[in-house]
């Protein structure tokens, strides 16, 4: 039985960090540590001396970790997981999911694989959640604009809410555009004129 892996997660968002830690529990008896405060990141990563570092690919601090891969020091020659061509499919999956992992290069790939796979799965979930949130926000924005446009029409033409909606929908169909586009144009025009 080999020693537990020392896994370091760099993630400022506490909930996300805990969620990643959770996902790694299944992958064996590993020692997982989280850095949430990014000040002095390089030194703190070196101090912890991890076998694996996991960080969001889209996080600007990734370049700080990158620098550590060039230095010789406490964390000896960690390399991006991407470096190993034999793991190309996993690497692609990681990039798609937005995970970057750095691994000390004397650890056998089969020990790392489940850890990275778990992280990839978790990041996929994050991405889905983010997309859903963006979608909800957008729908909410559209709702608001539509309501304002209806209100404007009701006020200026003295019509009911249903009639205002029908008018917007008819205009959209006639012009071959989306109803939210018509509503936005109306709201913008009204802002300009008032």
């Amino acid at each position: 039985m080999s020693d537990p892996l020392r896994i370091l997660i760099v993630e400022p968002d506490r909930d996300r960090a805990l969620s990643i830690v959770d996902s790694l529990k299944e992958t064996g008896d590993n020692e997982v540590h989280v850095i949430g405060d990014l000040s002095g990141l390089a030194r703190r990563v070196s101090d912890y001396n991890p076998d694996v570092v996991i960080i969001d690919l889209t996080h600007p601090s990734r370049d700080v970790i990158e620098e550590l891969t060039l230095a010789t020091g406490p964390m000896e020659r960690p390399v991006a997981i991407f470096a190993d061509a034999s793991e190309a499919s996993l690497t692609k999956a990681a990039i798609e999911a937005g995970v970057s992992a750095y691994v000390v290069d004397d650890i056998r790939p089969e020990r790392i694989r489940p850890v990275v796979e778990a992280a990839v799965a978790r990041f996929h979930m994050f991405r889905r959640m983010r997309e859903e949130l963006a979608e909800t926000k957008r729908a909410l924005e559209e709702r608001k604009v539509l309501d304002r446009a209806k209100g404007l029409l009701m006020k200026s033409r003295g019509i009911s809410e249903d009639e205002a909606y029908s008018l917007l929908r008819k205009t959209a169909m006639d012009k071959g555009r989306k109803i939210t586009e018509i509503a936005t144009a109306l709201v913008t025009a009204s802002d300009l004129l008032s």
């Binding site: 690919l57 600007p60 692609k92 990039i95």
Partner: peptide
């Protein structure tokens, strides 16, 4: 839009 040079490099190198 990317936020780090290492991710830009990886995105090109791995065809993203």
């Amino acid at each position: 839009r990317a936020s780090s040079w290492s991710s830009v490099r990886d995105m090109v190198a791995f065809g993203r």
